[in-house]
Design a protein around this nucleic acid. Structure first.
Lengths: 115, 115
DNA sequence: CTAATATGCAACTTAATGGTTGTATATCCG
DNA sequence: CGGATATACAACCATTAAGTTGCATATTAG
């Protein structure tokens, strides 16, 4: 298993808020998924969704604010690319919760074994 | 590694929206964490946060709507308990993203190896 | 140069969120 | 029974979110 050090180190509440908030929208999740596979321009993305160009731009701004994507200039275009690191931060938090849960189960088991 | 079958099977956009939305608030994440460790009544939880009882009630309603916690009646009290299954759904999605990312990296490696 | 393309951004509307207070109801204790 | 406790829920308010249109700017193509 590959270990990513410090995946959830010094994560502020605001930062986590922004990451989960950004992921709480199907269009934005789709943008993340597509740009994980391959970079895309804003126009590329805007074509795919049933909303205005400006609306897609706003979604990208939200994702960028959460660190989930980055923009790279290339002439008059901006290439959007997902940032796996930010995704790992969210995953790291959920794994922490999972561990807490497993710990609770282990304690319950221990309690039952005592009796 | 323990495998949870169907962790992200038939997850509707709305369901995922609600899970991530619910996690996008520090108070709600704290409620999840506390009730993963141990059940708590609404009053127990309300004591801990600097907001009204009703506000905490609302946060719990949001978590319940996302399936992240369940309520269990006990006399005049309601015990709140986190539901690890819903957390795993979110984790499953993020793992899917991670796999997409790894696949992209593998393809880039392959491309470089060819040259 | 000019037209077309790609993006940025402001102003506006509508709906959802997160908080409040107030009131009602149910349960427990003495 | 009657008071205290635990919860539910409605109404309201302020802020943010998500969409729109319209206009400005930068770059590329011919």
């Amino acid at each position: 298993m590959v270990v990513y050090p410090d995946v959830d180190a010094r994560l502020s509440d605001d930062e986590v808020d922004r990451i989960f908030r950004a992921l709480a929208d199907a269009t934005r999740r789709d943008i993340v998924q597509r740009t994980l596979i391959e970079d895309a321009s804003i126009s590329d993305l805007a074509e795919r969704y049933d909303m205005s160009f400006a609306a897609v731009q706003k979604h990208i701004t939200v994702l960028e604010g959460a660190g989930l994507v980055t923009k790279h200039r290339s002439g008059r275009m901006r290439h959007i690319r997902a940032n796996a690191q930010a995704l790992r931060k969210a995953q790291g938090l959920l794994q922490t919760y999972e561990r807490i849960w497993q710990h609770r189960l282990a304690q319950l088991d221990a309690l039952l074994a005592e009796e």
